[in-house]
Design a protein around this nucleic acid. Structure first.
Lengths: 167, 167
DNA sequence: CGAATAGTGGATTTCTGTATCTACAACTGT
DNA sequence: ACAGTTGTAGATACAGAAATCCACTATTCG
């Protein structure tokens, strides 16, 4: 659902938010957050270009957050490295679908919008666990639709259609 | 956000739902829905193994839906070919995170849950456009969180840090 | 100034999802 | 039974993401 690039970027930003007093080096973040060090530097560069972190070279250098963690949303970080794409036009290249989205893609886009909204309203500051009680409050009751149930329950195992040798 | 495999599977199922009277061949679906024919056959096999469609070989053969379109959710189709994975344990392999999800991954999982709920409650039947008015009703008001706004607006273009030749 | 530290950017490799091809098995209608 | 049609399955090719490597530039500190 989320790319590992996004995952790494989030871990890095959370780490920086947890250590606001000193610049953190790529190696330090990599080790603390279990991210491949070589790749992390690329990810941090993307975050720097997006204005989320700042880099400082040389000894005592490293990365710091550009603004306070409560002003950075989870969505900001994800969009910096691996933007969430909304569906604005029907990927089926048919004349009928040119103008509006068909119901299918409209629905898929709604799902993406839900994710955008949820992650856009979640700040990095909220993601810092206080190492005490893991304050995971439940969220978003549900949306206004009842689940459907298939007539036949999903077969636990594949039907396994027989394969006789030859008649 | 959604893989092209999922996209293809959904198109195929929507096509079958739109033509419930006769089996549709792979080639027919491929052409109608602009899906690469060779790949579609693999996707249809996955759908068959998941019990969503049935295959019939030989002349007059093709694929048909296993159950009525209003008993198949969009989520069913996606899960058949490219399952949506919930985050059940923290991917950061640290002792502290072993037991519960950290706030970060708890939040990401909530976002995934929203998608599951939304797509699980949407039937394929609802995705068939009646070729009239594209009945896309708006959905899911929003969830209970206000968006945050960064102190500094996201820079429109990358900061473009200077690159002088050599002093 | 010079040495050590740290980020930068390009080339390269690996891996996985996407897509094609082909030989084969199953089915229908004659 | 035969011929033609259609799905099945395995091997293979391709592309983009993930990850690594290395030479280079910038910065700090003695």
């Amino acid at each position: 659902m989320f790319s590992s690039t996004s995952e790494y970027a989030l871990r890095a930003v959370v780490h920086l938010a947890s250590n606001p007093d000193k610049p953190c080096t790529t190696g330090e973040i990599a080790e603390a957050m279990k991210v491949p060090a070589g790749y992390l530097s690329k990810v941090l560069q993307s975050l720097a270009r997006a204005g989320i972190v700042s880099a400082q070279r040389g000894p005592t250098g490293g990365f710091t957050l550009d603004r306070h963690a409560d002003r950075i949303s989870v969505l900001d970080v994800i969009n910096a490295v691996d933007p969430i794409e909304r569906i604005t036009k029907c990927p089926i290249d048919l004349p009928e679908h040119a103008a509006n989205l068909c119901p299918l893609h409209a629905r898929l886009d709604e799902a993406i919008a839900l994710v955008q909204t949820a992650l856009g309203a979640s700040t990095i500051a909220e993601m810092i666990e206080k190492r005490r009680g893991m304050t995971t409050r439940p969220v978003a009751p549900t949306i206004g639709r009842r689940p459907i149930r298939p007539t036949s329950a999903r077969p636990a195992e594949a039907p396994k259609r027989g394969r006789k040798p030859a008649r």
